[in-house]
Deep mutational scan, measured.
Amino acid sequence: MDPFLVLLHSVSSSLSSSELTELKFLCLGRVGKRKLERVQSGLDLFSMLLEQNDLEPGHTELLRELLASLRRHDLLRRVDDFEAGA
Rank of each mutant, 00 (worst) to 15 (best):
C27G: 02
L49V: 04
F46E: 03
L75A: 00
Q52L: 10
L55I: 15
R78T: 10
G29D: 15
R64Q: 06
D54L: 14
F4T: 02
G42S: 07
E61Y: 09
Q40F: 09
S69Y: 09
R71K: 14
G42A: 13
L7N: 02
T21Q: 13
V11N: 00
H59K: 14
G32T: 10
S13T: 08
S18W: 09
E19M: 00
M48V: 12
S41F: 05
F46S: 02
L26E: 06
S10V: 08
P57H: 09
H9I: 07
E56R: 14
K33A: 12
D54Q: 15
L5F: 14
L50K: 07
L67H: 03
E22G: 05
L63F: 05
L62Q: 05
G32Q: 09
L55Y: 06
L5K: 15
G32W: 04
L8C: 04
L63Q: 02
S18E: 14
V79G: 00
S69L: 08
L36D: 03
V11E: 00
S18V: 09
L66F: 08
L36C: 06
S41L: 04
L55K: 06
L28C: 13
E61V: 11
V6P: 04
H9C: 11
H73I: 07
H59E: 09
G32P: 12
A68L: 13
L49K: 00
H73Y: 12
E56I: 10
D54Y: 11
L23P: 02
K24T: 04
R77C: 08
Q52N: 13
E83D: 11
L63P: 02
E61C: 11
T60K: 03
D74P: 00
G42H: 04
S18T: 11
L28Y: 11
G29C: 09
F82C: 03
E65Y: 12
E19Q: 03
V31M: 09
R38E: 13
R30T: 07
H9Q: 15
S10I: 10
V79H: 01
E51G: 08
R77M: 07
D44M: 06
K33E: 15
L62G: 05
F25S: 15
F82V: 02
E51K: 10
L5W: 09
S14L: 06
L70V: 13
L45D: 03
S14Y: 03
T60A: 05
V39F: 04
S12Q: 02
G42V: 06
D81Q: 09
R71F: 06
F25I: 12
D44H: 08
L8K: 01
M1D: 04
V6Y: 15
S17A: 15
T21L: 09
S17G: 08
L36W: 05
L70M: 06
L36F: 05
A86T: 12
F46C: 03
F25L: 15
H73F: 12
A86P: 11
L66V: 05
G32C: 10
A86G: 15
V39I: 11
S69Q: 13
E56T: 15
E22V: 08
D80N: 09
E22M: 10
G29W: 06
R77Q: 11
L7D: 02
E65K: 12
S41T: 13
E56S: 15
S16N: 09
L45A: 02
D80V: 07
F25V: 13
K24C: 08
S47K: 15
Q40K: 15
E61A: 13
L45P: 00
L67S: 02
E22L: 08
M48R: 06
L75M: 04
L55C: 07
G29L: 05
T60Q: 03
Q52K: 09
R38K: 12
L49F: 07
R38L: 12
E65L: 09
L70G: 00
R71A: 10
F82Q: 04
H59F: 09
L70E: 01
L70W: 00
L7P: 01
E22S: 10
L28G: 13
A84G: 12
A68D: 08
T21V: 10
L28W: 09
E83G: 05
R78M: 12
G85K: 12
A84T: 13
R64H: 07
L26D: 04
E51W: 06
G29M: 07
L26H: 08
N53S: 10
L63R: 02
E51D: 11
L75P: 01
L70F: 00
E65F: 11
V31R: 01
V79R: 00
L76S: 05
L45Q: 02
S18N: 13
K24Q: 05
R72G: 00
L28A: 15
V31K: 01
R38T: 14
S16I: 03
D80Q: 09
V79F: 05
L7I: 03
